[in-house]
Design a binder for these strands. Structure first.
Lengths: 340, 340
DNA sequence: TTGTACGCGTTATCAG
DNA sequence: CTGATAACGCGTACAA
């Protein structure tokens, strides 16, 4: 491409020093003749000059870039989270560098390295859960906020999460009151993903309290790529006591979809005798016949809060106590529209 | 936060010159004593030193950053496109800076300015359609690839698009053969969005050829935020000739969802007499009762191709003729599962 | 009102 | 094998 035009080119063209140009670029018109200003205005336009942020950042020791590590970029959740983050970055004059960990903790770790190298002025991470040490280390060097997912650590982190435990527990009470007598939890491998773990644990508690289920017996962990396996477990659960109303509790939207898919392919119909309920309220859930009761929080807002918290840290350089923002989950109650 | 450690800190600590440190960092071990190397290895570890990419970029005149402007970050399409782009960026050792235009051409224009300032080494844009001049100008300074959407211009651009026209036209033939006698096109405002325009025009052609519809009479442009309006138009179409089998053709996934929602809220049932079909094949479409026939292309792959094309340009600095990659759309044929 | 000169952290060209 | 030193593009004391 064309050679990059610099502040020197402008100064040469205008017959003034680079200092004057720099002043002009930074809107420092206080000590500048009207003539010079007009002149520079014109030339900058003409040459379509763009000051180099890299150089600027090097000088000012601030890149104006926020980094964001996303566990799985393909998930609709990620797009919404990023939208929220983006909005706040824009209004603060910051740019956003996003890295996808692709559900791989190795890639996640690499991502932190890349962001530190850049260097970014702050990091928002939606972790895979298996990069605790790196995150701890990174947070020593750069303001950092955890988004949606946390992990056990001696250190405390700024974070924005949702109240998975209460929402799950309350939902189980609700489901019991709806008349369901049996319940099962479905999830992809829980791994170190805090949201899944919290939901699972609250489920076990709620199942024990409201459904007299012995711990763990109704927890199904399935390979998200194998519909056969999901179907098998689904059928297993159903067959156990076919006469009492049962409900499936899904750990997230993808799992919910998988369950519906498995049911459909095996001729299992949702009805008053078999309900489905789970985390995430995706737009399509409103229109399906299954009547998915969903638990969710506003993801865009979560992104906004993450970014706001981060900028709080960046701007105030404060060492205020770590801040844990807990967003409420909202339950959308639905029942099957199927006619009998 | 802590003061940033620089190459100087390392050199001081190691008692060698910064040159040696730089050599070490760049894996230039050819002329270096084993001892020095070990020593530096240790110190870099100990101080957890990260070379500053800004400074590096300033020197090498390359930021290692790719820019990406996305029309609407909240759309699931965007997440998938970005995932594809990300993957290729990573394997090429580049970082990705993503900006959301939020469906606003003003924000889109700002985004280009920001990316040029950064400066990025290349740009992928999924345009709102109303930033033609800016994109033309940007493409003079930086390699640029259009993703999914194009716009009329004297200049030709590298781009990756899908064959909206053929897919639409062929689909209309298919629908006619399925026995539908009437068809209507539903879309949010077409504006300058090429995908919508192409689909609409092909629809009109197909409607004329296969459905004897006079041009435009069956094109409904609706406010995506008003379900009432959508419902009104839906009912209008249905009522016109209730006895002949009709099918709705939706310009994209969001519109499809909106149509289903409107139908549901108004007691309109999809059946053999009323079908629905449209662009985008989102996972949930497989499990709905409506039997949505969908037209789609692999979005992640589209992202991959965009990025590959861009890197081709960046690496070869070639002025080869502009390249237009057209991805095939695939039709997934479904019919309602509703029982009568 | 404007200009000179230095430094930000790095790489690369020389010279030792 | 190693080290000064000059860039890269910009901002800013300090000087004029």
């Amino acid at each position: 491409m064309k050679k990059v035009t610099t502040i020197h080119d402008i100064s040469a063209r205008a017959g003034v020093s680079i200092t004057t140009v720099s002043r002009f670029l930074n809107g420092n018109y206080s000590n500048m003749s009207e003539k010079t200003r007009k002149r520079l205005e014109h030339i900058v336009q003409e040459l379509d000059y763009h000051p180099n942020s890299l150089a600027r950042g090097l000088k000012s020791q601030s890149s104006g870039i926020i980094g964001c590590v996303i566990a799985d970029m393909g998930n609709p959740f990620s797009a919404l989270l990023l939208k929220g983050i983006q909005t706040v970055c824009r209004s603060n004059g910051y740019k956003l560098m996003t890295l996808d960990a692709d559900n791989d903790s190795l890639l996640e770790k690499e991502a932190y390295k890349i962001l530190l190298d850049t260097p970014v002025e702050g990091i928002i991470c939606n972790t895979t859960g298996n990069a605790a040490q790196e995150i701890e280390s990174v947070s020593e060097k750069t303001p950092l906020v955890l988004a949606d997912r946390v992990f056990p650590s001696k250190k405390e982190f700024d974070c924005v999460v949702s109240d998975n435990e209460n929402a799950t527990y309350d939902c189980l009470r609700y489901l019991r009151n709806q008349g369901y007598e049996r319940i099962a939890f479905f999830s992809p491998p829980v791994d170190a993903i805090s949201t899944r773990r919290e939901r699972m644990e609250a489920f076990c508690k709620g199942a024990a309290d409201f459904f007299n289920a012995d711990n763990g017996s109704n927890v199904y962990v399935v390979d998200p790529n194998s519909m056969e396996e999901t179907a098998q477990m689904l059928l297993d659960f159903i067959s156990r006591s076919p006469s009492s109303p049962a409900v499936l509790f899904s750990v997230n939207g993808e799992m919910t979809l998988q369950l519906i898919r498995a049911a459909k392919h095996n001729g299992v119909a949702f009805s008053r005798e078999l309900g489905i309920c789970g985390f995430d309220d995706w737009p399509w859930m409103e229109v399906t016949e299954q009547g998915i009761t969903s638990i969710s929080t506003d993801t865009v807002t979560m992104g906004v809060k993450c970014a706001e918290l981060l900028f709080e840290r960046i701007k105030n350089k404060n060492s205020a106590p770590t801040c844990r923002i807990v967003m409420q989950n909202h339950r959308t109650e639905r029942t099957t529209t199927k006619r009998f």
